[in-house]
């Protein structure tokens, strides 16, 4: 997990991960907020069910997929954290229609 440096700017953003309320700061990607909140594994893979977390954090590797507000397979590193967001870790393949 990652820790925030003490001397920073940015207002607090409230969101939930797997139903648990937590916070990040304005300007965080969803991935950054999850890593600071102590989540290294974001999903299990569709192929073998292995745990995965972010690898590149720049939109290229697609390993940071999570479900955001009901839509699965969202790149957590590319989406900005917003107040009230509901983020779910993903398990295996996404279901049809989500």
């Amino acid at each position: 997990m990652f820790q925030r440096l003490p001397d920073i700017s940015g207002t607090t953003v409230h969101f939930s991960i797997d139903g648990k309320p937590t916070t990040g700061i304005e300007g965080d990607s969803v991935a950054a907020a999850l890593l600071v909140a102590g989540h290294n594994a974001f999903r299990t893979t569709a192929v073998s069910g292995a745990e995965r977390g972010p690898y590149c954090l720049m939109g290229a590797c697609h390993d940071c997929y999570v479900e955001i507000d009901g839509t699965a397979n969202q790149q957590a590193c590319r989406i900005r954290l917003r107040d009230g967001m509901s983020v779910l870790t993903q398990h295996g393949k996404r279901d049809l229609g989500r």
């Binding site: 820790q3 920073i8 965080d28 990607s29 950054a32 890593l35 954090l57």
Partner: peptide, 26 residues
């Protein structure tokens, strides 16, 4: 093991520093 959670690129960690002022804990 490069796919294990907790393993990422140096560039990824640097992005966290630049954009979220975060550094590895531990």
């Amino acid at each position: 093991g490069w796919t294990l959670p907790g393993v990422m690129t140096v560039g990824a960690a640097q992005i966290l520093l630049k954009s979220s002022a975060a550094v590895p804990r531990g």
